Amino acid sequence: MTDNPLFDYSPIIDRPRITWPDGRKVAVYVGLNIEHFLLGRPSTSIWPGTADLVPDALNHGWRDYGARVGIWRVIDSLDRHGVRASALLNSSVVDHYPQIIEAGRARNWAWLAHGRTNSVLHTGMSRAEERVVLADIVDTIAAGTGQRPRGWLGPGLTETVHTPELLAEAGLDYVLDWTNDDQPYPLTVPGMISVPYTLELNDLVVFGRGVTGPEYLRMVQDQYEQLRADSQDSGRVLALALHPFVIGQAFRAKYLDLALEFLAAQPDAWLTTSDEIAEHHRRARP
Score class of each variant (00 low, 15 high):
residue 213 G to T: 05
residue 286 P to A: 13
residue 21 P to K: 04
residue 22 D to P: 10
residue 79 D to S: 07
residue 107 R to S: 01
residue 99 Q to F: 08
residue 282 R to A: 05
residue 88 L to I: 12
residue 228 R to L: 01
residue 228 R to T: 07
residue 259 A to L: 00
residue 42 P to F: 15
residue 165 E to V: 04
residue 249 Q to S: 04
residue 194 S to T: 09
residue 160 T to S: 15
residue 246 V to P: 00
residue 260 L to P: 07
residue 85 A to V: 10
residue 110 A to R: 11
residue 230 D to H: 07
residue 154 G to Q: 00
residue 240 L to R: 08
residue 203 D to M: 11
residue 171 G to P: 12
residue 18 I to E: 06
residue 283 R to A: 10
residue 4 N to E: 06
residue 269 A to G: 07
residue 1 M to A: 15
residue 127 R to H: 03
residue 51 A to K: 14
residue 48 P to G: 06
residue 186 P to T: 04
residue 93 V to Q: 08
residue 248 G to Y: 12
residue 64 D to S: 04
residue 21 P to E: 04
residue 243 H to L: 14
residue 45 S to H: 10
residue 215 E to N: 02
residue 134 L to D: 10
residue 280 H to Q: 10
residue 232 Q to K: 10
residue 51 A to H: 03
residue 66 G to T: 03
residue 74 V to L: 04
residue 170 A to C: 06
residue 180 N to S: 07
residue 37 F to M: 11
residue 205 V to A: 07
residue 17 R to V: 11
residue 182 D to L: 01
residue 137 I to C: 12
residue 231 S to H: 08
residue 257 D to T: 05
residue 125 M to T: 08
residue 134 L to V: 11
residue 67 A to P: 09
residue 2 T to P: 10
residue 279 E to H: 05
residue 260 L to R: 09
residue 173 D to H: 12
residue 264 A to T: 11
residue 52 D to V: 08
residue 250 A to C: 09
residue 213 G to C: 09
residue 150 R to L: 15
residue 75 I to P: 02
residue 189 V to A: 11
residue 225 E to G: 05
residue 170 A to P: 05
residue 34 I to E: 03
residue 111 W to G: 13
residue 215 E to H: 09
residue 278 A to L: 01
residue 229 A to R: 15
residue 124 G to H: 09
residue 49 G to R: 09
residue 65 Y to T: 03
residue 116 R to L: 02
residue 67 A to H: 04
residue 144 G to W: 04
residue 230 D to Y: 08
residue 54 V to F: 11
residue 10 S to M: 13
residue 175 V to E: 06
residue 74 V to Q: 03
residue 185 Y to R: 01
residue 198 T to D: 01
residue 239 A to K: 01
residue 277 I to H: 12
residue 158 T to C: 11
residue 228 R to I: 07
residue 243 H to V: 13
residue 141 I to N: 06
residue 28 V to E: 02
residue 98 P to E: 12
residue 209 R to T: 00
residue 180 N to R: 06
residue 273 T to F: 14
residue 263 L to Q: 00
residue 246 V to I: 02
residue 53 L to W: 03
residue 226 Q to A: 03
residue 212 T to E: 03
residue 232 Q to V: 12
residue 268 D to I: 04
residue 189 V to S: 07
residue 2 T to G: 14
residue 194 S to R: 00
residue 4 N to H: 09
residue 148 R to N: 12
residue 162 H to P: 05
residue 103 A to I: 07
residue 42 P to Y: 14
residue 38 L to S: 09
residue 227 L to Q: 11
residue 245 F to W: 07
residue 128 A to H: 02
residue 122 H to T: 01
residue 176 L to H: 04
residue 102 E to S: 15
residue 171 G to M: 06
residue 32 L to N: 00
residue 182 D to F: 06
residue 216 Y to S: 05
residue 232 Q to D: 07
residue 237 V to M: 03
residue 237 V to P: 07
residue 73 R to V: 11
residue 31 G to R: 08
residue 150 R to W: 10
residue 133 V to R: 15
residue 241 A to K: 06
residue 11 P to K: 06
residue 140 T to Q: 10
residue 100 I to M: 13
residue 37 F to A: 12
residue 80 R to C: 02
residue 256 L to W: 05
